[in-house]
Nucleic acid binder design. Structure first.
Lengths: 199, 199
DNA sequence: CGATAAACGGACCGCGCGGTCAACTTGTAC
DNA sequence: GTACAAGTTGACCGCGCGGTCCGTTTATCG
């Protein structure tokens, strides 16, 4: 019935090349990198892109799905760490490190049009909430900060660092450090605004 | 010789309407709001836009120039405040408050193509450096943070808050609070990465 | 080998963008 | 009121984008 023969060898090769090229291109130029450029970088024709991914959004979704999956895996591994505060910091480090992409903002975007991405995203969100709750309970996090806050703040270090012209590609670590100091309970000042609705 | 008669009344009216409409449109849709939409919003034809601003970039530059000017003025006023730490916080509040635009990132962009914007931007940067230096000397800021750091981080609260769907338009205040706690000297952990080259 | 379907490639399409222009309208000065 | 320059307008242009399509190539299998 649904007997589908395995795909051709060159097809799987091209698909992998496309995903890699697209990831690089999106990381360098942002989400508006053109499909033609991606095809050229992968060494295939433009039509081949659309054979594998019916829409540019589908290509983005494939990459996002991959990244978000890695993130969830890493987060789940860190859930049982002895030091929940360090675990959260490490999770945020992994999140920012992912191919030092300009930002993870397209995550929110892509999820709105693709159900699979939305599902993976929500799973990742749950993992973050969990890590945050553990860190807070453990006294490693200020009490007035929520998982949603951290989800939103996650992208900030990369975003900020991307506007420094000649800086080290690891500059985001600096701003993650500052951000994380702001999340610690020591010397936390009351926040003037309530947390946003949960994500 | 360069005797230029004053512009017509409707021209100055349209110019003002255009600037206002463009500011709104850019605030809502980001920098890729179309010129046609801006013209429609201002109630004028598309050609009129280009009569007043030869290029879309010139229109952006006019707005940015205005905002950056306000910011510099506010910063200069705050330079003599009794409490340099509070002054810096107030400056960052004003910066984020500016029409709650999605981000100030286009500032960096616009400066690369327009000399006047670059000049105003640099002046504003100097003001920030000054405010930061005073706050640091006063013990209100961690010692390992530079003016350039603050310039880069300035945009973060707005950026982060813009990704919360149904949240309060003042949500940025919350993230500015967290960020500023990360900038305080109390309980600051050493940063893993050196500061970026000065802006 | 062929035979065949899967995969490929690039010319092509429609669209919306920033920007131009020539015909038209209107504020202003006398 | 009239003349004229300043201002306005929307049709129009070229371009690059995402996406389509069909003639061609090629991996696979008996």
């Amino acid at each position: 019935m649904t007997d589908t023969r395995p795909p051709r060898a060159d097809a799987v090769r091209n698909r992998a090349a496309l995903l890699s090229a697209a990831a690089d291109e999106f990381a360098e130029r942002g989400m508006d990198a053109s499909v033609a450029d991606i095809a050229r970088r992968a060494g295939v024709g433009k039509g081949t892109v659309f054979r594998h991914f019916p829409t540019k959004d589908d290509l983005i979704a494939a990459i996002v799905l991959d990244r978000v999956g890695e993130l969830t895996t890493a987060g789940d591994r860190l859930r049982d760490a002895a030091d929940p505060g360090g675990a959260l910091l490490e999770f945020l480090t992994i999140a920012a490190q992912q191919r030092q992409q300009r930002d993870l903002s397209f995550l929110h975007v892509a999820g709105d049009t693709n159900a699979a991405v939305a599902e993976a995203r929500d799973q990742m969100y749950r993992t973050v909430h969990d890590l945050v709750d553990r860190a807070r309970t453990h006294g490693a996090l200020r009490t007035d900060v929520t998982g949603t806050d951290v989800i939103l703040l996650m992208c900030a270090p990369n975003y900020v660092a991307s506007y420094a012209p000649g800086a080290s590609p690891d500059l985001w670590r600096r701003y993650l450090g500052i951000l994380f100091d702001g999340l610690r309970p020591q010397g936390a000042h009351p926040l003037p605004e309530p947390p946003p609705p949960a994500l």
